[in-house]
């Protein structure tokens, strides 16, 4: 097991390097002058521009820039943004709020998604099944931003049940319910569909027939014997989905004006703040890969046939 983790961590290194280089290269291709707007109405003085470019290694070729950046990153220095604030400080606060948002979204996925999928799978072909099938298709085919703006209007503005925007960095859990639901809505639908498919397939498995032949109650035959096997792929999906959630956070956080990682990346892009964007996304990719590793390990626990030796 230990060996497996070490091997996976080693395999992660080229992936992190490659992914961050792609991001670095894209971000530093961002057009426009990074110093524009820094000196009030007038263009900045040549002196200031030169100093700025030197400080941020903007004069080096791309690969060298990347190398220098990486050296600092490895020592835990995520650089400073163009306003002179260390990115690390910013990120700590913003990852907290986005992390909460993502965890709440995953909670929605897990509870609502699995519950709906199980109900549909157990009552295959009945009313609940059709209801779940139709409503999940509905959610999947409407873009998240439309759902988001619509729910914001309905719950936030028209009925005033939840706050329509959540600009505070210390947002309460209650105020994050609506954004988290929007962020997780697509995945809730996918999880429900995946759970249903797996459950229906596993209900026909030989070992479920054995469970019935053993005289187990239906609750036990389905709840214990079928569900466990059906949930293994669902767990994998939820883990892999974590990255998509962090990406989708850009859209959700924009709708609800949340000051999270997504908002930070968006702001960084618009102010041509390359370092801020690269550092944020790099951390995001690393988090994503670590979560995937965790999911693979969990997979081994859930399914004894998988061996990590």
């Amino acid at each position: 097991m230990g060996k497996y983790i070490v091997r996976r961590l080693l395999q992660m290194i080229p992936v992190v390097l490659g992914a961050t280089f792609i991001i670095f290269a894209m971000v530093f291709a961002l057009p426009g002058d990074p110093t524009s707007g820094k000196c009030g109405e007038r263009p900045c003085s040549a002196e200031y521009v030169a100093k700025f470019r030197e400080e941020h290694n903007l004069n080096d070729p791309l690969l060298i820039q990347y190398g220098k950046y990486l050296g600092k990153f490895a020592q835990g220095d995520l650089g400073t943004n163009y306003y002179g604030i260390p990115v690390k400080e910013d990120l700590a606060k913003r990852y907290t709020i986005t992390g909460r948002l993502a965890i709440m979204a995953i909670a929605f996925e897990t509870f609502i998604g699995i519950l709906a999928g199980v109900l549909a799978g157990v009552r295959k072909g009945r009313f609940v099944d059709n209801l779940v099938t139709v409503s999940t298709l509905f959610v999947i085919s409407i873009p998240v931003f439309v759902i988001g703006v619509f729910l914001q209007y309905l719950f936030g503005i028209k009925w005033g049940i939840f706050p329509a925007t959540v600009p505070s960095l210390e947002a309460s859990t209650f105020s994050l319910i609506l954004p988290a639901f929007v962020l997780g809505s697509l995945s809730v639908a996918y999880v429900a569909r995946l759970t249903r498919t797996n459950l229906v397939e596993n209900l026909r498995a030989d070992y479920v027939r054995t469970a019935v032949a053993k005289g187990l109650t239906k609750r036990r035959a389905v709840g214990v014997h079928t569900l466990r096997n059906s949930l293994i792929p669902v767990v994998t999906f939820i883990g892999a989905d974590f990255g998509a959630l962090l990406g989708g956070a850009i859209v959700t956080e924009r709708i609800f004006n949340i000051q999270g990682v997504g908002g930070y990346i968006w702001k960084g892009i618009n102010s041509r703040d390359g370092i801020a964007v690269v550092s944020t996304v790099t951390v995001l990719v690393i988090v994503y890969l670590l979560v995937n590793l965790l999911v693979d390990l969990l997979y081994g626990v859930l399914d004894p046939r998988i061996s990590h030796e």
Partner: peptide, 11 residues
């Protein structure tokens, strides 16, 4: 490792 929507936005 780069989520589709994130890559799309950056690009």
């Amino acid at each position: 490792a780069i989520p589709l929507i994130l890559g799309g936005i950056l690009f």
